[in-house]
Amino acid sequence: MGSMLKMLNSSIGQKVIMSLTGLFLCSFLLVHVSGNLQLFKDDHGLAFNQYTVFMTTFTPIKIVSYLLYATILIHAINSLLLTMANRKARAVGYQSRKDPRSSSWASKNMGILGTILLIFLITHMANFWYQYKFGDTPWAEYSVDLNSGMVLGEPIVIEGEDLHPHEYVRTDASGNEVNVVVVKNLYAVVKEAFTQPLLVVLYLIGMIALAYHMVHGFQSSFQTLGIRHNTYTPLIRGIGIWLFGIIIPLLFAAMPVYFFLQL
């Protein structure tokens, strides 16, 4: 254990921490973007709200979410320590510095990109996580026709003390079986939040920062772990650029735009 702590304290060890925490955060991005694609579903937000219940109540997910918060903190704090050490390593700078063209802009600005992402994350958590957990997120009652599986219109806003997510089946006047689902309506909070142009702009800036952060970070984390191969490294770079640098940020960016334009 002592030996391991000593290793993590070395320059390479600290980079390994950045690499492993970074890759874990990449895996989270995959889950987060897949789950949130349900925002685009034409069901007045039922699937998204049910998914939210699952993500906030299922114990293994809850454990992973605490691990995730810790990972974000470790990644951010460690990067700050590394940046300070790196500044110290060049106390006097150059007057005529020209970086070689082969060094990508992102690779030289991971700290700035990360800071933008941290500001974005705090805003993002305040917008939705805090609203859901501690804010006054409204409760909604959805009706789903059990025969067709169709959501029967906008949910009804319900109020009251001690509400909790639940569902039951009732038979309506014409004899159809209807599933009634009572959930916190985070979907409505999302829809409402993205009517604000400033917030949409902030989210778009956040996603641009994410794109650049990923283009360098994903492939760089493999290099730090010593994984480099004539065949696999180009593949890793491809995944870093296309999946994490382009597709995922675009899908995330589409969410505020979708609500802002009321598509």
Binding site: S10, S11, I12, Q14, K15, L82, A85, N86, K88, A89, R90, D99, P100, R101, S102, S103, S104, S107, K108, M110, H216, Q219, S220, Q223, T224
Partner: peptide, 18 residues
Amino acid sequence: MDEEGFGTCTNTEACEAE
């Protein structure tokens, strides 16, 4: 290397280019 006070590697690959 760490004791001498060199910085850490950010994989900018400027070293290889120069």
